[in-house]
Design a protein around this nucleic acid. Sequence first.
DNA 1: GGGGCCATGTAACCCGTTACATGATTGA
DNA 2: TCAATCATGTAACGGGTTACATGGCCCC
Lengths: 191, 191
Amino acid sequence: MDVKTLCLGALTMGDATGYEIRKMFEDGPFAQFFDASYGSIYPALGHLLKDELVSVTQLAQEKRPDKKVYSLTAAGLAHFKKALAVPPTKDKIRSEHVVRLFFADYMSKTDLIAVYQSYLTHFQSQADHLRSLQPENTTSGRLFARGLGLKFYDAMAAYLIENRDQLFEEPVLAAAETTNETPDLQELGND
Amino acid sequence: MDVKTLCLGALTMGDATGYEIRKMFEDGPFAQFFDASYGSIYPALGHLLKDELVSVTQLAQEKRPDKKVYSLTAAGLAHFKKALAVPPTKDKIRSEHVVRLFFADYMSKTDLIAVYQSYLTHFQSQADHLRSLQPENTTSGRLFARGLGLKFYDAMAAYLIENRDQLFEEPVLAAAETTNETPDLQELGND
DNA sequence: GGGGCCATGTAACCCGTTACATGATTGA
DNA sequence: TCAATCATGTAACGGGTTACATGGCCCC
């Protein structure tokens, strides 16, 4: 499933410009499960237009590029439904954060803390953001997907918090409990 | 972070062939957060060898291609550590399953059920599989990552089960509760 | 005055996947 | 006998990202 199909999906929710579709991938409801940049969205829209799966209304604007509002055509909707009927491929995940957590013993404590923090913050802010979107567009599918995303972000944040100590556990040492500065950093290997 | 770096990471866990590294992405501990095919692994190993980040021992085998066992060099380990010290990029997720759940109202009930089932089965079998790997290699990082994966799979499976009805809820009709066959499929749009 | 938002698009590049090529062994 | 596992590699192709190109408005 490519960006073209996702653009069709975006347009089922209402007419939109390329710029607005991009935002759906960045902030909006798609951010949870897909990503796409301008460099793929604008060409995709161009192809869809050529194939008459979308139509466009050009709004002239003074002092800005013309705004091109795209709409789904009947053929576009049919095409989208057909794409959904194809069995989904395996989900693709690439998490550089988890790579770093997995190989924590090859990292300096400072770097590891930074990774942990940015990951936790990411999940928390995504969860807050999803919660903030009031479900106006409520179809059962969208509610279901929203709930799934929320569960995901909350579960990940909870795990990170609950197991923090396990990650930063020193292999051997068990003494220095009352010190207030990070006591020892050795073998940082930064050259 | 590219496949080359991940290969270095794989080799920190012990010498391995390209074939074995592939399996780590498919079955093994990496499957959780990354994927890579032969077409990227073999060339990656070739480049790493050229750059002397890995070394190779060729084992002649009768009736099979020579087995090439790769080992991490000191330079390779240093390189890997440096790569880990770079702040991680945003996690990338592309889930065709969630796309379909999100757009459930554009799917036939039959197709939707199939998607739901395959997703649930996927999470359950991944969770079972992760649980089956006894943590021999136990570093705190690996345990932490394993736990995170487990939490993820379990949370997703639980959500799917708990909210099943919400997904298959008919928009309007509230009568046919005692029928035993799926009563009505309309607007399937399959041409 | 500077950064962020609105708004569209192109081109080079990178990286990875898919499919192809080869082939014996083992177990159901 | 047929599928799976072991075992390595290449080439074509595809799809998306990054960076570039342009430019005014609005708020701090």
